[in-house]
Design a protein around this nucleic acid. Structure first.
Length: 746
DNA sequence: AGAAACGGAA
């Protein structure tokens, strides 16, 4: 009686899972399990409902399961992408003395591919060979896909070579496999081989090629291939466009960009999310802010990824303020902003001198409940370095450790730079040492750190370690090495590395390298040699080059070359008062007062004032900006009193204020500044007032530190027994016990 | 079989 009830229940087309479970329990209770009709029916009910434990249990308890039973169960789970279960069931075949067939093998292989499970994949491959399906084309192409998914292109290719008839699908897969790994030459080879064998490439084959060139950085080739496929009559799909648009953006090919945009409209691809995003990105990179805004305005305004691309594009085009406005507007309208949106804003700020704003965005995003990720951190850290906000920098370092970003090379490299810019070169070095796989950026960061601290020996040592590590040095590497040489007057080494750049390392000398050499030679007084390098350059020297020559001419009182350099600078930077002041300093040193007055008159007629000097100092968690002559600081009275007191003490110890007649005369308007002192002195005084005895003081300045402040701070460091770090535009000055780490050579 | 938006160094 029970038998027929159970039978009725299980065979009903409307049987539910819970009914099946009840029937199962009854079968077990009545010991009816040997009835294969019931068990098979249960098995199919469980596997169709994807109940893995029950399915597995029944499979195990079947006395003599057939391959068909296994196949149907495996296909049920495979249909629902439950690949772990597929593999688990598949692995029991052997113990039941069953050999998989040409239908079951591809399912198992596909499961391995989807899970990127190489070990089981190889085991299944073994099964294939044993069971005699080694030349089955379906099985072979599944294996090829599996090896490609598992990043074993060599194994894939071995199979591919042995395949008897290869269809366009397997060709395309191999092409994409090579091109995704950047092996575009191999991809190209296969592409033409395929045609030779009479297999015509389809859209997918072309897409793979274009994508490969794009991700490989071969942008010209990517664009060329795109044109070729058009000329062969292919109608690119959205995917193709999102491969070629980034390349067009990199090439800043406005014309081609507009053509593709036209094609997008014609083909009705304006609803494709990827295409629209790539268009925004492309216009942003091409400097077409207007076109980009048009695309954005016409796009779905509720899509946050469009907003993200738009914001990045705006700030890339120097429109950071607009980006902030747009951001605020969408935020107020209740748009759901994600971590990309916030990170993008933080990066825009830190890359555009809005460092305090970057810190504020970081705080705000967390208050808004958006968790910073491993991309957010390295976008923010440069801001701490830029303003020497060591306390903030350390806090963010701790934050990133709490988040578990221990060995992220991006975070690590950003920290190296940040600590170096905050004057803590030892901490910087420690961050470098714990990176398990430093890349060129990490090496460059630590070299630049040592270079800005004037430590040429370590910089050069690290340069050789970079070479040993197998990284190929780039132009930044050489800028670090050469600037270290320049700061230390290492003529011989400087020439050596400069000459080796293109000869041994294939790095062409650019403006910044010539600038280092001009600085190096002219600082030590080899002004003519510096000038002849400038004349030998194959491109027009820029203001940095002439500026380096001019300031050395001032140091070495060389009037004739100084005038040459100044003439060039007046054309290149007509509104930079610094150049006029330097030239007038040279005239003054030669007592040529008529010329001094002439320069002053030119400056007056142009309405030029000296660039405002300002300095930053972090006191506790607050970053103060001090402007020369600015009376707004709440502690100004105390600061001036402190400076007065220091002045008295310093004079007793032998300090002579280095006032220059010229500067005072030129800047009659800036009496206040002279009264209040330079911003770096104000900042040092503020630091002394607000920190405990013996605490180090850290200041940064937007201009080069002046002779007088340099001399004064040396005295202050010994009188007050403080370590004082001053970072100017050029390098670090580490004052301790009355001496500076630069050895007065800067 | 194929795709993209945010990131680090001078």
């Amino acid at each position: 009686m029970f038998h027929s009830i159970i039978s009725q229940c299980l065979n009903s087309p409307t049987v539910t899972l819970s009914q099946a479970r009840q029937a199962h329990a009854t079968i077990l209770k009545l010991n009816l399990f040997s009835d294969t009709h019931f068990t098979k029916r249960l098995l199919s009910l469980y596997s169709n409902n994807l109940c893995f434990p029950e399915t597995n249990h029944i499979l195990h308890s079947l006395p003599q399961p057939t391959l068909f039973t296994f196949s149907s169960v495996i296909h049920s789970f495979a249909r629902s992408n439950l690949y772990h279960h597929v593999l688990q069931i598949f692995s029991h075949l052997g113990s039941r003395d069953l050999v998989p067939d040409g239908y079951l093998l591809p399912s198992a292989i596909k499961a391995c591919a989807s899970l990127q499970a190489l070990k089981p994949g190889r085991q299944v491959h073994g099964f294939v060979l044993v069971s005699g399906y080694g030349l089955d084309s379906v099985v072979m192409s599944s294996l090829i896909h599996m090896y490609l998914k598992c990043d074993q292109i060599g194994d894939a290719h071995k199979l591919f070579d042995r395949m008897p008839d290869r269809d366009v699908v397997v060709w395309s897969a191999m092409i994409a496999g090579y091109s995704r790994r950047g092996l575009v030459d191999k991809a190209k080879e296969l592409f033409s081989e395929m045609r030779d064998e009479g297999v015509e490439p389809n859209l997918v084959s072309w897409n793979g090629m274009v994508a490969g060139f794009n991700s490989n950085g071969s942008y010209v080739e990517a664009a060329m291939l795109f044109r070729m496929m058009l000329s062969e009559g292919f109608l690119p799909e959205g995917v193709t466009l999102s491969c070629v648009l980034p390349a067009i953006g990199q090439l800043e090919d406005t014309v081609m960009g507009a053509q593709v945009h036209g094609y997008v409209i014609k083909q009705g691809l304006k609803t494709d999310k990827f295409v629209v995003n790539s268009l925004l990105d492309m216009y942003g990179k091409c400097g077409c802010a207007l076109e980009m805004s048009q695309v954005f305005d016409e796009a779905d305004q509720t899509e946050v990824c469009f907003l993200n691309a738009f914001l990045t594009g705006l700030s890339r085009n120097g429109l950071v303020d607009t980006a902030v406005q747009v951001f605020e507007q969408f935020k107020d309208e209740g748009m759901e902003l994600n971590v990309v949106t916030w990170t993008s804003m933080i990066a825009s700020c830190s890359q555009n001198g809005k460092d305090l704003e970057a810190l504020e965005f970081f705080r705000e995003m967390q208050a808004d409940g958006v968790e910073p990720n491993a991309v957010t951190i390295p976008s923010l850290i440069p801001s701490c370095g830029n303003i020497s906000a060591l306390t903030h920098g350390k806090e963010i370092h701790c934050f990133s450790l709490r988040k578990g970003f221990f060995d992220d090379v991006y975070v690590g490299s950003a920290l190296i730079d940040m600590y170096a810019k905050c004057g803590r070169i030892q901490l910087s070095r420690r961050c470098f040492d714990i990176i398990s796989a430093p890349n060129l950026v990490s090496w460059n960061a630590i070299m630049s750190g040592y270079a800005m601290h004037g430590r040429a020996k370590e910089t050069i040592e690290l340069f050789h370690m970079t070479l040993q590590s197998g990284e190929k040095p780039d132009r930044i590497t050489f800028t670090c090495v050469l600037s270290a040489c320049a700061q230390n007057g290492l003529i011989e080494e400087g020439w050596h590395y400069f000459n080796s750049m293109s000869k041994e390392h294939g790095v062409e000398a650019k403006m910044e390298h010539y600038a280092c050499m001009v600085t190096l030679l002219s600082r030590v007084g080899k002004l003519e040699e510096a000038y002849s390098i400038i004349k030998e350059m194959s491109f027009e020297p820029d203001a940095c080059i002439w500026g380096a020559l001019l300031s050395s001419c001032r140091v070495h009182h060389n009037l004739s070359l100084g005038e040459v350099a100044a003439e060039k600078l007046f054309l290149l930077e007509p509104n930079n008062p610094g150049n006029y002041i330097l030239l007038s300093n040279i005239y003054a040193s030669k007592s040529m007062w008529d010329d001094v007055n002439r320069i002053r008159d030119v400056m007056k007629s142009k309405g030029m004032r000296k660039n405002p000097g300002y300095s930053w100092i972090e006191v506790g968690r607050k970053v103060h900006m001090l402007l020369a002559g600015d009376k707004s600081h709440p502690q100004l009275k105390e600061i001036l009193e402190k400076l007065d007191e220091l002045n008295m003490k310093m004079k007793k110890s032998g300090y002579l204020p280095k006032t220059s007649f010229v500067l005072q005369d030129v800047e009659e308007q800036d009496k206040e500044e002279i009264l209040c002192g330079h911003s770096e002195k104000l900042a040092v005084a503020l630091g002394l007032l607000n920190t405990g005895p013996g605490q180090p003081i850290q200041v940064i300045k937007n201009l080069r530190i002046c002779d007088d402040c340099h001399a004064a701070i040396k005295f202050i460091s010994s009188l007050e027994e403080r370590e004082i770090f001053v970072r100017d535009t050029n390098r670090f000055h580490h004052f301790k016990d009355g001496v500076c780490s630069c050895g007065d050579y800067w």
